[in-house]
Design a protein around this nucleic acid. Sequence first.
DNA 1: CAGTGAGCGAGCTTCCGCTTGACTT
Length: 811
Amino acid sequence: MKIWFVPFYFCYFAANFRINSPKTLNMSKNLVIVESPAKAKTIEKFLGKEYQVMSSFGHIRDLAEKGIGIDFENNYKPDYIVSTDKKKVVSELKKATKLAETIWLASDEDREGEAIAWHLYDELKLKPENTKRIVFHEITKDAILNAIENPRSIDIHLVDAQQARRVLDRIVGFELSPVLWRKVKPSLSAGRVQSVAVRLIVERERDINQFVAESAYKVTATFKTNDANGQPVELKADLQQRFAEKQEAMAFLEKCKKAAFTIESISTKPTKKSPAPPFTTSTLQQEAARKLGFSVAQTMMVAQRLYESGNITYMRTDSVNLSSLAINTCKAEIISMAGQKYVHTRKFNTKTKGAQEAHEAIRPTYMNAHTIEGTNQEKKLYELIWKRTIASQMSDAELEKTTINISVSGSEYPFIASGEVIVFDGFLKVYLESTDEENDAESESLLPSLRENEKLTYIEIAAQQRFTQKPARYSEASLVRKLEELGIGRPSTYAPTISTIQNRTYVEKGDRQPEKRDFSYLKLKNDKISDSIKSENTGAEKSKLFPSDIGIVVSDFLTEYFPDILNYNFTADVEKEFDLIADGKIKWTKSIDKFYKKFHPIVEDTLKNSERQSGERILGTDPVSGRQLSVKIGKFGPLAQIGTSEEEEKPVFASLRKDQSIENITMEEALELFKLPRQLGEFEGKVMTVAIGRFGPYIRHDASFYSLPKTDDPMEISMERAVEIIENKREEEKNRVISILGENGEIQVLNGRYGAYFTCNKINYKIPKGIEATDLTFEKCTQLMAAQPDAGIKKKGFTKKGAGGKKTSKK
DNA sequence: CAGTGAGCGAGCTTCCGCTTGACTT
């Protein structure tokens, strides 16, 4: 039945198998080991028959998963074991090493890569006399041949820096998480990276809640005059000054009634715009989110496919560097496309904190391929990468910025009109980087050609009350940018980290509906000033990260008891320590010992002395019962509670709605929650109750549930309307079953939300166009089922797994 | 597919960073 999947997996597996299967028939003298199978495939082509290239698939060993995997009694000795999913790879590699004369360890040239080389050396029991360590940052024939000419030995100090990194992360994660299990809720997690990511989101939310908007009046004018050729033209200009108070704005408009408007000066200034550097993982994630609307995980999934199909270079990188080969092919491409004057080759420097630059920037493998074959998403992402890469080697754009200064007689404040003209488009011909702040869409355009001292008359002048903007919530991509800026996390972990904090429900991705806000609007026209109130929508957000109540409680708790770990500079500081280890200036175990001696007592102390955290907030007293009203996190999420458990009378509970938070729910809103469930009256002798459940508002009647449409308010709904909803649903139910087929009725033909379908063994099947649902027979259905082998199978997801469970070994 | 907020208290959960994996709740 699932035979359709086989060809895909088979090809995939066969390809990898070929790469990693020892060529026993033409025994190669040389065995090269790299990290990625796609890379192995490419390199093998460059090296010829004397070399066999295999892949380690990343790290082959890690700290033991059971327990902490560190021997504290024995100077922090790590307990390394081969990961279960790497056992096969390791045994294949072992076989191959026995047959080779020389083994070349060619893992990446960074801390993790060096450690991979060392683990291979150790686990495969290689001998120093025939093992060589080589590195290259770009996958070109020259670079690889050059590397082979210049082998070195494993840099044990760099390996030690990685061991320190690994052990530190294990200690932090595996000592902090159990504190949360005891003090907040089981199964929670904390770590050097994820906890700081959550803190950023929690603090941003606080900034937003505490934000008080200020307003000022912005004055804009439309003038008319004649241009240099005597043609009538209009000109828009803004007043430089903003007025804090309405009276000031009003007074200014009053002045304008009789004022003379004169062009005092016109200045033009040439400016330049330079292209952005080629993509790194983080900038690719940001641009794909802004330009294509991809989530961070989606971008990485599509990029992975582009990499595997050989269309782009490696997609997990922090480097903006391009190989000289790539720069040259860009140049050739630009010349043939646009001409020599569009070429301006550049070397970009990586400014990112903690960047390790083991790879090139993300770029197309072949610059002459402007597009590629593939899915729509693959094409779009590829074109984005192609444009960004090409643009990075193109000339600056030359612009001319014109500023017209207009004086107002009787006032010290001038109006300014400005416009921008592109004199030479340069890289803009291909690509312009987007920004997060798209609202300032007042695109500057060409201004009419005017003369100094010209007099203008106004058509209208308006003073509009404008408010300062709340800070924006993080999106997935802007959080990645912030983490990168702080040097926290690595290209390979940005997407998984974003998934982890969502899977642990610390953070939720969601939208915020806009709110209406009134502003006052003064307008001067025909020497009359009108004063009106208008309204605008504000605060709408889409796909942004919101902290949950549990996220807030956990973050506050950790920040209070472990301020050092939650400090935004913690990672940057330990990175400095790791650099000292890598330089051989300090032993890694000593560095860890210093940390642990300070950290562990705080863990012990917190376990002993801190209170259980429920995020409880007392809102006041219930006016009806006189008992205490509070909110806190309960076993099933945030709740409101009247009374306390100490009192004799048991407390009354009500769940918070999804859009409410312990942090800022008001007493009135909390009391509202207790008005449900509400008895509506009787129908057919049975009580109707209205309430809000997990799936929204519903009516309960005679043990059946009836969902309320969005248009009905559970607080307001009338008895008549409720009866109508119940009868509608019954009617639908009656029409749901079209026919029942088979001897035991194993197939049912039904009416659903999207039309007719049939179901068998809890799997739903489509009815193809042209077939009437009423004409279906048992035989026909069996045929249709055979034709839909993958019905009921969920689409494969990459996101959730990467973050959470990879416990493939467990039963 | 719907309202819970807890009792004997077993035995479990968890990190970050490399890589790609592959038959279901």
